[in-house]
């Protein structure tokens, strides 16, 4: 009888723990939100394009760098360059490409596909 009760208790514990964990993950106790570094790559790209547009407006390089830093990409410059080349290759909005190329150029990177999108007075690698 006792053995049966213990076995039932253990089964109850297991089922309860499973149910509690599933419930806890589905109904989190805290507000479930995350930072910019957790954005989907599509939105990270969109964010980066907007950073480029904002930089085109305010010319504040420190602010642009700080904004890019919030994406927590290990190599922000490399990320921008890669994104700019992807945008060029896929024929995206030229204005977006120019904004990304401007960022990449300020990081000191310009690649041949970027050259047509460089502002006239930007020195490559400046």
């Amino acid at each position: 009888m006792i053995r049966r009760a213990l076995l039932t208790l253990l089964i109850g514990l297991g089922l309860g723990a499973l149910g509690g964990a599933v419930f806890g993950w589905l109904v989190p106790i805290q507000d479930v939100s995350a930072g910019l570094d957790k954005l989907h790559p599509t939105y990270k790209a969109e964010y980066t394009v907007m950073v480029g547009a904002a930089y085109a407006v305010d010319g504040d390089w420190d602010l642009a760098q700080a904004r890019l830093g919030r994406l927590a990409e290990p190599d922000p410059a490399g990320y921008v360059v890669l994104l700019a080349e992807q945008y060029i290759a896929s024929g995206r909005n030229p204005d977006d490409i120019r904004n990304l190329v401007r960022l990449a150029a300020h990081f000191g990177y310009t690649t041949p596909p970027m050259l047509p999108y460089l502002p006239p007075t930007v020195e490559p690698g400046s």
């Binding site: 253990l10 109850g12 514990l13 309860g16 499973l18 509690g20 419930f23 989190p28 106790i29």
Partner: peptide, 22 residues
């Protein structure tokens, strides 16, 4: 059938599961 044992197990297990998930 040991209903009390089952109920106790479910309550304890559910609490532990919640603590783990939260």
């Amino acid at each position: 059938f040991p209903w009390i044992a089952l109920l106790a197990g479910l309550i304890l297990g559910f609490s532990g599961g919640l603590y783990y998930a939260w």
